[in-house]
């Protein structure tokens, strides 16, 4: 379809407005983190780095950040193992119930988080004797599998089939084929999937609320608990601004290291 100048122009304006809608709120959070006014008077009467210093020195924030990273790393490891195994099964073989298997892994993110949350909470408290750090990791691992699965399965479907057969025709056994063909082809998809799993876990609040043990506080939990305390407002805002700025890192990494511009999205 050859678009007229006018329709291209209109679409361009729609794109610009859409991006403004996406970025202006994030920019306001960042600007506010330097606002001298404790009540975020707008426009800001002056700028200061006081809140950033306070946030970096806050022990609660630092502990929560470490916990979040720790949980996300473990959840990603679980997701990588389970997701890769499933991807190899669903992308290479035709078997009864294959679509159902794929659908099953979508459920933990397609169903509202509060349902996964209370279902896990109920089982963990009644059968495992309560919530711990481990129950949180198990909960996160479960809904992270799907991003690794989707990225890896898509890659295997697209790239690998024929090349693997060729390798085996040329005399490679399964181990060699996996090491020399399958794994190198999957690597960047695994990286993208792992990155997404990490991000998904790092950001998760609802399942976390229901599966974290009493002493376990992730960064989202810390933010939520301090959100309604007027005294903490500037620190919460500085932490929020920090998270906005940090979100550039994984996108940059995905583009640089995987060479895959889309990265598959979070979905």
């Amino acid at each position: 379809m050859t678009l007229s100048r006018t329709s291209r122009w209109i679409l361009g304006v729609a794109m610009a407005l859409g991006l403004a809608f996406v970025y202006v709120p994030l920019a306001i959070v960042v600007v506010n983190s330097f606002n001298t006014s404790r009540l975020f008077q707008w426009p800001p009467p002056g700028f200061t780095t006081e809140w950033w210093q306070a946030a970096f020195q806050n022990q609660g924030v630092r502990d929560a950040l470490v916990t979040s990273i720790f949980v996300a790393v473990l959840a990603t490891a679980i997701a990588l193992v389970l997701g890769t195994l499933t991807a190899m099964a669903v992308s290479r073989y035709q078997f009864w119930g294959r679509n159902t298997v794929s659908l099953l892994f979508v459920f933990p993110i397609a169903l509202p988080g509060i349902i996964t949350g209370i279902a896990l909470n109920n089982v963990f408290t009644s059968f495992l004797g309560g919530l711990t750090f481990l129950t949180l990791v198990i909960g996160h691992g479960t809904f992270c599998v799907v991003v690794v699965l989707n990225n890896t399965a898509a890659r295997l479907r697209r790239v690998v089939g024929n090349v693997e057969e060729a390798a085996m025709d040329l005399g490679a056994n399964r181990t060699q084929t996996f090491r020399d063909i399958t794994f190198p082809a999957m690597r960047s998809a695994l990286f993208a999937g792992g990155l997404l799993a990490f991000g998904l876990s790092f950001d998760e609040i609802i399942v976390t609320t229901f599966t974290a043990g009493p002493g376990t506080q992730t960064l989202p939990l810390w933010i939520f608990q301090n959100l309604f305390r007027p005294n903490s407002a500037p620190i919460v805002n500085a932490v929020a601004a920090f998270l906005v700025l940090v979100s550039i890192v994984p996108v940059y990494l995905a583009q640089r290291l995987s060479g895959d511009a889309t990265g598959g999205g979070r979905i």
């Binding site: 996406v22 609040i205 889309t262």
Partner: peptide
Amino acid sequence: LVALVLTPLWASYLVKVYA
């Protein structure tokens, strides 16, 4: 443009609601 649309997904859910 894809990166510009993708990046906000990595900004925390809570932070966006807070915004």
